[in-house]
């Protein structure tokens, strides 16, 4: 299959290792991965802040960037951004009176998948250790980000794949379905409420005794990781793509105060 990677803006700029890990998993399964260079962002930051006109411009950029390419599916390492493609992009284009872009956005969204969705529903992966060679010795807990869980309906997909990684010891967090407090611009526009939310999330993570907290959205992990770092906690945050990409030959190295280096690359 020819897969177009939608890296998402935050992964592109802040966590390239997550995109690298996603590529590694897809190539391991024999897919050809391409990266349309014109891509930028899903438009959520503008849309959810109420800047709809700007958001429409970003939607148009996304649609045009991907329409230049031939591919079978789009894969992104984010539940939130993928949910936004189908849920918000057509609405934003319609609102701007551009029904052609609205239709293209809906068509592209129908071919876009969050990583765990693609692996299970499209590729039929049910065991990360056996089918992806995933190996990560360590104690892990997981945060299920709200948009993936509620808007996209990912259910237990990410958690199930994580739990089948060889060597991994899993503990579920109390209040798994509770928001970490990120919420995009909410995190600084309502900084105190957001701060109280992430403080509770971090406390629950620490109660698991895990040394790594993983998840499917780099934005939530940046929020959680930033709060852990501020607290001086030794717990590290890692995207689940990095754990799935980790193998016995090229294990994921978790080190340093907040920086994590993917092995191999």
């Amino acid at each position: 299959m020819r897969v177009a990677l939608f890296s998402t803006c935050i992964v592109d700029a802040m966590y390239p290792r997550v995109a690298q890990a996603t590529v590694e998993i897809l190539e391991r399964l024999g897919h050809e991965v391409v990266f349309p260079q014109g891509q930028t962002c899903c438009s959520q930051m503008h849309a959810n802040s109420g800047y709809f006109d700007d958001a429409y411009q970003v939607v148009k950029t996304h649609v045009q960037a991907f329409e230049e390419w031939d591919f079978d599916a789009i894969v992104a390492p984010s539940g939130s951004c993928v949910a936004s493609l189908g849920h918000q992009q057509p609405m934003l284009a319609e609102r701007a009176g551009d029904s052609a872009i609205a239709k293209s956005a809906a068509d592209l969204a129908a071919r876009s998948f969050e990583l765990s969705q693609f692996l299970i529903d499209v590729c039929g992966i049910t065991n990360a250790a056996e089918q992806l060679g995933s190996y990560f010795p360590g104690s892990v807990t997981y945060h299920s980000s709200c948009h993936g869980m509620r808007l996209l309906g990912l259910g237990s997909r990410q958690e199930d794949l994580i739990r089948t990684v060889e060597g991994l010891e899993y503990t579920r967090i109390e209040g798994l379905d509770q928001c970490c407090g990120f919420g995009g611009t909410f995190s600084f526009k309502n900084a105190d409420t957001s701060g109280a939310m992430v403080a509770d999330k971090v406390a629950n993570i620490e109660k698991t005794g895990a040394s790594v907290c993983t998840g499917g959205d780099a934005s939530c992990l940046m929020n959680i990781g930033g709060a852990l770092s501020r607290k001086g906690s030794p717990v590290q945050t890692v995207h689940f793509a990095e754990i799935l990409a980790s193998t016995k030959e090229k294990p994921l190295q978790v080190s340093g105060p907040v920086s994590i280096t993917a092995g191999g690359k």
Partner: peptide, 9 residues
């Protein structure tokens, strides 16, 4: 508001 409660990597 972000850095009141968290670091940025």
């Amino acid at each position: 508001g972000w850095t009141d409660y968290r670091d940025i990597p």
